[in-house]
Computed example of a mutant assay.
Amino acid sequence: MALIQCQFYSETLSLSIGINALIPQHSALQISGSGKLPVLYLLHGLSADHTDWIRHSSIERYAEEKGIAVVMPSVGRSYYTDMKFGSPYFTFLSEELPQIVRALFPISDRREDTFVAGMSMGGYGAFKLGLSFPERYAAAASLSGGLDIVSRMNGLNNFQPHELIAIFGDVSELEGSTNDLFYLMDKLKAYEGNKPMFYQCCGTEDFLYQDNQAFRKRAIDLGIEVAYEDGRGEHDWNYWEPKIQSVLNWLPIETNL
Rank of each mutant, 00 (worst) to 15 (best):
V226N: 12
S78M: 10
G193C: 03
F92K: 05
F92L: 07
E95M: 11
S16P: 01
P38S: 04
F133N: 13
I244G: 01
Y183T: 07
I59K: 06
S108L: 10
I23M: 01
G233P: 01
P252M: 08
D148N: 15
L15K: 15
F105E: 08
P73A: 06
R232W: 02
Y80I: 11
G45K: 07
I244D: 00
L13D: 08
N194H: 04
T81R: 13
E96C: 08
I100T: 09
L188W: 01
M83H: 12
Q213N: 08
H56W: 14
A117F: 06
H50C: 10
E163W: 11
A166T: 04
L13T: 13
I220S: 13
E234I: 05
I68M: 06
I149M: 15
A190E: 10
I165Y: 01
I220R: 15
H235S: 09
Y137D: 07
F215K: 01
D113Y: 05
E60T: 11
G118F: 02
A28Y: 10
A141S: 03
G231V: 03
G35W: 02
L40M: 08
H162I: 05
F92C: 05
A214D: 08
S94D: 03
H26P: 04
G193T: 01
A126E: 01
Y80Q: 11
A117T: 06
L22V: 02
S94F: 01
S57L: 08
G67F: 06
G76L: 11
Y239R: 11
D211I: 12
Y137E: 07
H162E: 14
N158G: 00
S57I: 08
E173T: 08
Q210N: 11
C6L: 03
L93P: 05
K217W: 10
E192P: 01
A48W: 10
F115G: 00
H26S: 13
S47D: 13
R111C: 12
D49F: 09
D211R: 12
D221R: 14
E192C: 03
T91K: 02
F207Y: 15
D186R: 06
A126Q: 02
R216E: 14
S172I: 06
H44M: 13
F92R: 05
V101N: 01
N194T: 07
Q30V: 09
L222V: 14
K195W: 10
P24L: 02
L97A: 08
M83S: 13
E60R: 15
L251H: 03
S108R: 09
V70N: 01
M153I: 06
A219C: 13
G35S: 00
E95I: 09
D206T: 11
L184F: 02
L129N: 10
K189Y: 12
N20G: 00
Y89H: 04
A190K: 09
M72F: 04
E173A: 13
A214N: 11
M72Q: 03
Y79S: 11
F92W: 13
Y199S: 04
S87Q: 07
